[in-house]
Design a protein around this nucleic acid. Sequence first.
DNA 1: GTTTATGCAAAGGTTTTGCAAGTGG
DNA 2: CCACTTGCAAAACCTTTGCATAAAC
Lengths: 146, 146
Amino acid sequence: MSHHKIEYEDLMHRHGLRVTPQRLTILDAVCDVGGHATLGAIYRTAKLADPAISRSTIYRTLEVFCEIGLVTSAEIGEDGKVYEIVEAHPHHHLVCQVCGEIQQIPDEIMQPTFDRIKQAFGFDVETSHLVLSGTCRNCRGSISCE
Amino acid sequence: MSHHKIEYEDLMHRHGLRVTPQRLTILDAVCDVGGHATLGAIYRTAKLADPAISRSTIYRTLEVFCEIGLVTSAEIGEDGKVYEIVEAHPHHHLVCQVCGEIQQIPDEIMQPTFDRIKQAFGFDVETSHLVLSGTCRNCRGSISCE
DNA sequence: GTTTATGCAAAGGTTTTGCAAGTGG
DNA sequence: CCACTTGCAAAACCTTTGCATAAAC
């Protein structure tokens, strides 16, 4: 998770930000938690690496990371805001309302629709991180899931 | 806004809920506020009709309305959760990040994509109220918008 | 050295909860 | 009447903010 550390540091420098141990810790934490990291989860994970880290630092740092495009945030269901490292390939998420499983889908699958919206309404969709809820394959088949 | 009052009352009854003045007031308020009603706006509007109504009642009532499918909620931008009466025709929203304008689009435009997701991933999308952000026609053309 | 970032603690705001009183069916 | 709802007040929760200290550059 750290092969790209240099890139990240570069990105911060280019934005006039300082590279602090806390910021690297938080970045690692977002990676470690994986796909949909709530602030609480990031805080807990970062706390393992640096027990002295403070909650406000997490808030401020995530805000800064979002601003420079290192991280995106999205609102998913009931858990409040979640954070995710921005990857090369934009993608979206399917959240199963029955079992809670989350899977990713490539952005390409949405593009035809986004194109159609652009044609019909002149609206340029920039949603980088869409969350679709519904029922996944497993839960759709079996009733024993509920 | 009250031609369907009977239907709403029926729906509540069918769910074993009681029809109280407060609930009707809140339902009216959600209608009056229109498309994207924040809790605060609903509270303020309901307060006009019934100055004694309490905030917790708004919270609890909206939660109940969501459960029985009378109302949907969605997270839009920075304003937190917004509520909306469930209408016959499902639709989604385009939120312009520049001017903040919100427009509705019919659900049909999304269906091809939802179908494709179902085919490819076996995932049955049930999102009734999607929020797409981007740039609207006006703001895309002119820079003078900001 | 300067400027920026951090940690702490306190403030701010929103949402939830327990309970007695009130009300719909 | 009984069960469900309400309003109130307090609690719980999450997020933001001010400021002195510490660290990056």
